[in-house]
Design a protein around this nucleic acid. Structure first.
Length: 425
RNA sequence: GCUGAGGUAGUCUAGCGGUAAGGCGCAGGCCUGGAAAGCCUGUGGUGCGAAAGUGCCUCGGGGGUUCAAUUCCCCCCCUCAGCGCCA
């Protein structure tokens, strides 16, 4: 969420950002937030004065009693105060919660380098890496291939868990683990600490890290408990340090989250998305960084480079796109996607999402950093996150790009050490 | 799930109707050739103010009693210990 102090000080920045996003509804909120916030502070001044008076009278009553003086007039004034205070508090509380509700829904301020555009068709390609292979036979779609080879069982998963779930078996179960292990080892060499987080978190922590509108659409709620299945390890890892203050020397903090991810919404189905591409559950290794505001743009590039290194090493052709204003969502100030070449569809498809959330999550989570030489100064930190590998989508890419005519699939050499040195699935 | 003990500022600990005391840590200052030690000041949130300042809030959370609640009453949450169940 945006810091109310930021909105007060920079209303024009907030307005022009919402114009860039073409969001007239939220644009109208800005003035309402500002006027309600002003009224709220005005009320606070009044109420604080009433409280001050009450405190003074209480002390005077105490002293008068000790001195054996009459207190009836003091008691009369004191009796009139609580109701006024209560009324003011009620009004202020109502205003404050409205302001907060708007603030929670106002999006992050976009970086200037974010391209303007209506939707994902207007994302800007930044570069292409690798050359798509040409096939002299007809590719099987990845789900069919996996099922035929006994590497996955979609039908039985549907029977016991519903559509969008899968059993991974044999080679693909091992490939899932190999991909995770490969990504973890690569990130560990770059200073990331592997972290396996809780797979459920409570509502208030969730509100700190995600877009509120995602709640009903995306998250699975555990019935009867204040618990949600995580949609990505980004969420518990972000919430991990809520209400804490970092020392500058402890930043940047680089963590590699390892977890299954659970998502209710999986969107449309088609032959190519059916198997492993759009699913309710998948494994992911995630890069997450807490850093100072000065470092975040440099680290954003670093996270992208790490993710690219993984796909390059796997030998998968990909391109990088700069996500445009119409597609970026509320939390990120800037987002890159890596899309990998899917030869059956003849298209690049999303496999990595790399975001600089600047202070947006930190404000909600109340995470700050204190400089060593300036004890008084506390600033909100910046958070960043990027996929390292989402195994379901990477497996689809491998099943398509490295498929042979006889239905075998070549294991990328970098994964073989994690697959008992096998060359084929 | 049961029983018991707890929840006080970054942390540890006191206070048990009169408006949060102290230790440690941390930051700044004094002292010093430099350091340590010692001493002094500060240490959460929020508002008003150009500033100097100044006010309000904060004792797990929410209600209640009272002129006044960390303290008394009610409800809830969490942590720890023991027991039970258990991969």
């Amino acid at each position: 969420m945006l810091d109310i102090r930021f909105v007060r000080a920079n209303p024009d920045t907030v307005r022009s950002d919402l114009q860039k996003r073409n969001d007239p509804k939220k644009l109208a909120w800005v003035d309402e937030v500002l006027s309600k916030d002003a009224r709220s502070r005005e009320l606070k001044v009044q109420t604080d004065e009433l409280r001050r008076r009450r405190n003074v009278i209480s002390r005077e009553i105490n002293e008068a009693r000790k001195a054996g003086k009459d207190t009836t007039s003091l008691l009369a004034e004191a009796a009139s105060l609580p109701q006024k205070i209560k009324d003011n508090d009620a009004e202020q509380e109502e205003i404050a919660s409205t302001v907060r509700a708007y603030l929670m829904r106002l999006p992050n301020i976009l970086d200037e380098s974010v391209p303007q555009g209506k939707d994902d068709n207007e994302n800007v390609e930044l570069k292409r890496v690798g050359t798509p292979r040409t096939f002299d036979f007809e590719l099987k779609n990845h789900g069919q291939l996996a099922a035929e080879n006994g590497w996955a069982d979609f039908e039985r998963a549907t029977k016991c868990s519903g559509a969008g779930f899968y059993f991974l078996k044999g080679s693909l179960a091992l490939l899932d683990l190999a991909l995770q292990r490969f990504a973890i080892d690569l990130l560990a060499k770059k200073g990331f600490t592997p972290v396996i987080p809780p797979f459920m978190i409570n509502r208030s922590s969730y509100e700190g890290v995600t877009d509120l509108d995602d709640f009903e659409k995306v998250m699975y709620k555990i019935d009867g408990d204040d618990a949600y299945l995580i949609a990505t390890s980004e969420h518990p890892i972000g919430a991990m340090y809520q209400d804490e203050i970092f020392e500058e020397k402890d930043l940047p903090l680089r963590l590699a989250g390892i977890s299954p991810c659970f998502r209710r919404e999986i969107g449309s189905h088609g032959l190519d998305t059916k198997g492993l591409f759009r699913v309710h559950q998948f494994s992911k290794v995630e890069q997450f960084v807490f850093c100072t505001p000065e470092d975040s743009w440099k680290i954003h590039e670093e996270l992208l480079a790490n993710a690219e290194e993984i796909f390059m090493a796997l030998g998968l052709p990909y391109h990088v796109v700069n996500i445009c204003t119409g597609d970026i969502g509320t939390v990120a100030a800037k987002k890159y996607d890596i899309e990998v070449w899917m030869p059956r569809e003849n298209a690049y498809k999303e496999v990595v999402s790399c975001s600089n959330c600047t202070a947006y999550q930190a404000v909600r989570l109340n995470i700050k950093v204190r400089a060593k030489d300036d004890f008084e100064s506390k600033r909100y930190i910046h958070t960043l996150n990027s996929t390292a590998i989402a195994t379901s989508r990477a497996m689809r890419a491998i099943l398509e790009n490295f498929q042979e005519k006889d239905g075998t699939v070549v294991i990328p050499p970098v994964l073989r050490q994690y697959m008992n040195d096998r060359e084929l699935l």
